[in-house]
């Protein structure tokens, strides 16, 4: 079974803070990590490979430093990795990103299954997976937390719902996005990390020309949505003491909840 895993290198958002004066993100000194959901996609891929054999190709789009994420993925058990890196890719929204990844996957060619994390913690959109699936004309299942069965023609997976789950049979090839499941993602092996650092490491870098895309279709120019403005969310405390009888104070409190759409 040949598996492609889509991963993203992200800033560890729990460490991202805003500069209180400028309202800009302070990115210096923030460590980058493999997006947490993507680690589960990698773990799922490696587990499947252990049972069914095949190869795992990891694909990411990002700046040159995203190479670190690919090395870590190889450390976890991926066979090959591809970094899509080109200044022309920058500023892409999910539309342009899914197009770029889709073209790269077509360029890779041979696959039975594409795995991705449900969403990345820096954007939280959960859009790229389904958009890649649609670009490639593949069936998709999102929010997958368990793969029950694998045959040459289909997989049976569990998809998380708000109030339970669905068991879905999905024909192959397909794209699945995964959420954390029962198994904790494994740590990379040192021996495999060394493999990723060698001169002949199985990591390739592709630019726009390699995957046959034009600049009008990718990056900011190929995007349909644009960020017009960013600003810091308001965190000012109201600091209001409610007064009156117990029931009166509680009444006021519930009114505040309603005003702020908390209930």
């Amino acid at each position: 079974m040949n598996i492609i895993v889509l991963i993203k290198q992200v800033p560890n958002t729990s460490e991202v803070k805003l500069d209180p004066k400028t309202g800009n993100l302070i990115r210096e000194g923030v460590e980058t990590i493999i997006n947490p959901d993507d680690l589960h996609a990698l773990e799922t891929a490696v587990t499947l490979k252990e049972t069914y054999g095949g190869t795992i190709t990891v694909l990411t789009m990002g700046p040159p430093q995203a190479m670190d994420a690919l090395s870590e993925a190889i450390g976890m058990g991926a066979d090959k990795a591809i970094l899509l890196s080109d200044r022309a890719f920058s500023g892409a929204d999910t539309w342009a990103t899914s197009y770029t990844l889709g073209k790269a996957i077509q360029h890779i060619g041979d696959y039975d299954l594409i795995l991705a994390g449900r969403q990345a913690i820096d954007g939280d959109t959960a859009q790229v997976g389904p958009q890649v699936a649609d670009f490639l004309g593949l069936p998709q299942v999102t929010y997958v937390f368990d793969i029950e069965a694998v045959t040459t023609d289909y997989v049976v997976v569990k998809r998380r719902l708000e109030d339970g789950y669905e068991r879905i049979q999905c024909s192959l090839p397909a794209l699945l996005t995964v959420i954390p499941g029962a198994k904790h993602p494994r740590y990379p092996l040192v021996s495999r990390l060394l493999l990723a650092c060698r001169e002949k490491a199985p990591i390739k870098i592709w630019n726009a020309a390699d995957i046959r895309v034009t600049t009008a279709e990718i990056g900011l120019d190929g995007s349909l949505t644009q960020v017009i403005r960013t600003f810091a969310p308001k965190f000012e405390r109201q600091g209001e003491f409610l007064e009156g009888s117990t029931s009166g104070m509680v009444q006021n409190l519930i009114a505040r909840f309603k005003e702020n759409k908390l209930i």
Binding site: P11, T13, S14, V16, K17, L18, L25, I121, D122, G123, D124, L224, T225, Q226, V227, I228, R229, T230, F231, A232, P233
Partner: peptide, 13 residues
């Protein structure tokens, strides 16, 4: 919200 709720972004299409 973006970046885990640390930033708000306004987007146009």
């Amino acid at each position: 919200p973006a970046f885990g709720g640390n930033v708000m972004a306004t987007i146009a299409n």
